[in-house]
Design a protein around this nucleic acid. Sequence first.
DNA 1: CTATTCTTAACTGGATTAGTAAGGAATGGC
DNA 2: GCCATTCCTTACTAATCCAGTTAAGAATAG
Lengths: 146, 146
Amino acid sequence: MFNVNSRTRYGLLALIDLAVNSVHKFVTAQDVAERKHIPPKFLGQILASLVQAGLVEGRRGSSGGYMLAVSPHTLTIDRVLAALGAEGPSQRCIYDVDRATCTLPYRQDKCDAIGIAEEAAMKVLVSTTLADLCPGPSTTEPVYQI
Amino acid sequence: MFNVNSRTRYGLLALIDLAVNSVHKFVTAQDVAERKHIPPKFLGQILASLVQAGLVEGRRGSSGGYMLAVSPHTLTIDRVLAALGAEGPSQRCIYDVDRATCTLPYRQDKCDAIGIAEEAAMKVLVSTTLADLCPGPSTTEPVYQI
DNA sequence: CTATTCTTAACTGGATTAGTAAGGAATGGC
DNA sequence: GCCATTCCTTACTAATCCAGTTAAGAATAG
């Protein structure tokens, strides 16, 4: 249904890996690639765009690598997908009219079913964080305990 | 977000056209193409797959054409998209594990956010009919009046 | 018999996808 | 300062998908 291409899939896997393994330290693309079975050079490309989007910090040189730039608990999946180049809900209905400003006389509530469906999906993505996708109780999660 | 290609878009427009214009009569692909500004030969291809899916009836010869094979009020949009070759919610999560049978120990409720999002979208599509997409109160809608 | 219309399959140019390859720039260790 | 390491950026490529076009064939009505 969604167009989850390998770029998107690898990007998500890499972020999950960083959330688990790069807690306050830099992890190389090579390491991530091996753990998640991703072609290393391709992963470099994908991580670069995550850096440009501000989700990840990259540092060069020996002891360089990548680290999450934001907390996995505040990073919502819609932001991740946007950073990976996936497109959000379409702005135009099947009549090619801008959904926001549409004033077609015959327009009904449900006329733009696909757009509404996309928004329903978006709602889920906005309310899910990277931490939700990580194995077990996240190690970066603040735990309040007596 | 969804991959709404021209095949999908044209298919939906054609079905809307049939719902409005082919009430108990056959309408040629040519007519539909002109009204909806669709390349006629391409539309033929698309209508053929709607026929194979059983949503539309086609008849050849002069006075032939296409006609809806089901009521627009019972034809849900998910069926339409399926008939047009769009893929439904993906069966595999980003770990490439079948969602239905996944027993990964670390799996959490939200682990498969994209699948859940797709299902939320699906819910909307299942509860919307072709009639909902048609202009005005549908002419095929049974009206009970005193 | 013939014009019309659907039906089916093969084909094509362009765009996208999934990577690969290579050169350059920053960083840390010596 | 030098060098190995690692990220960063751009260019390239083979394969696939998309948006149609073309053409031959089959059914139908008159």
